[in-house]
């Protein structure tokens, strides 16, 4: 049973999250081990598994980007593990800028951070964050709608576009993390990118 089926949903990306949460609570009441303490050990093992499956499904579907990641995995037949599945890849038009960033990072590592050095890291970081937001917007906007509207023959094309966007997003996340680390502002980066 895939995560969409757990909630009785078709394999579509546009999901009403308020309704999803309501359904999650309703199914939790059905499956949660708390309400099956008096059941036989076999029955308890079954509810434990059902409850775990429900929680994993909810986590994958409630967030629109995690949902795209899951769909890509599912379509490729690799739905065992949660988390990022695509290899980070630099978008070609950013390669030159990436080269400069790596240089600035190397300099910061050797010579420490002065005012100019900080600025050389902050400016690209902020640019990349804007770019990351664009990539996120593309995923939850046009690409999500594109998948839901696509005829079966077009699906592979949309899937490929989603994978590319996810790879770019993963790459941007890593570079932003590196820049934040170098700037000593890694707290927020650690929360937003590394684990999601």
């Amino acid at each position: 049973m895939d995560h969409f089926q757990v909630f009785g949903l078709p394999r579509r990306l546009a999901i009403d999250t308020v309704e999803l949460q309501r359904k999650f609570y309703e199914l939790s009441r059905l499956h949660h081990p708390d309400f099956h303490q008096a059941a036989s050990p076999e029955e308890q093992a079954r509810t434990l598994e059902a409850s775990a499956r429900l929680n994993t499904a909810y986590r994958a579907l409630r967030d629109p980007i995690a949902r795209v990641e899951y769909l890509v995995r599912l379509e490729e037949g690799r739905d065992t593990k949660e988390g990022a599945t695509v290899k980070p890849k630099a978008p070609p038009e950013l390669l030159e800028e990436m080269f400069e960033i790596q240089e600035a990072l190397a300099e910061a590592k050797v010579g420490g951070l002065d005012e100019a050095g900080r600025a050389a890291l902050v400016a690209p970081r902020d640019r990349l964050m804007v770019r990351l937001e664009q990539e996120n917007a593309r995923l939850v906007g046009p690409l999500t709608q594109g998948w839901d509207a696509a005829a079966p023959a077009e699906r592979q094309r949309v899937l490929a576009a989603m994978k590319e966007a996810l790879a770019t997003r993963a790459y941007l996340g890593t570079v932003i993390d590196d820049l934040n680390d170098a700037l000593g502002e890694s707290l927020e980066g650690y929360v937003t990118h590394r684990r999601h």
Partner: peptide, 16 residues
């Protein structure tokens, strides 16, 4: 990472 922090429990993950 198999199960990220702040995942609702019970939860499971499979790995090969």
């Amino acid at each position: 990472v198999l199960i990220p922090r702040n995942t609702t429990i019970p939860t499971s993950a499979r790995e090969m």
